[in-house]
């Protein structure tokens, strides 16, 4: 059975790019979310296998969302994506 993939990013541009990269690798993105709210809705409804998660979202902090994901879908694999360079955020959540 093919895996379900969700992309969480507020940027349409980033979602498209990521979708393109994943398609090249043979993965089909089954859901996209542009906000924490949309992500949570999809999470509860579909329990995606793989989640690409941007940590800066307009309505929520992706890291808080990560905690929520691990509770709701403990089996989901989460890839955190960000271009954030501020070391403390990275350390704190390492």
């Amino acid at each position: 059975m093919s895996r379900t993939v969700m992309i969480v990013d507020d940027s349409l541009f980033m979602r498209k790019i990521l979708r393109g990269i994943l398609a090249e690798q043979g993965y089909t993105v089954t859901a996209e979310a542009a906000s924490g709210l949309e992500a949570m809705k999809n999470l509860h409804a579909n329990h995606p296998d793989i989640i690409f998660l941007d940590i800066i979202l307009p309505d929520s902090n992706g890291l808080d969302l990560l905690a929520e994901i691990t509770t709701v879908c403990p089996d989901s694999k989460v890839v955190v994506c960000s271009s954030i360079g501020q070391p403390l955020v990275i350390q704190k959540n390492a």
């Binding site: 507020d10 349409l12 996209e32 542009a34 906000s35 924490g36 949570m40 309505d59 929520e68």
Partner: peptide
């Protein structure tokens, strides 16, 4: 989680 409505889809 203080979610705001985002309607980009």
């Amino acid at each position: 989680h203080q979610f705001r409505q985002a309607d980009s889809f």
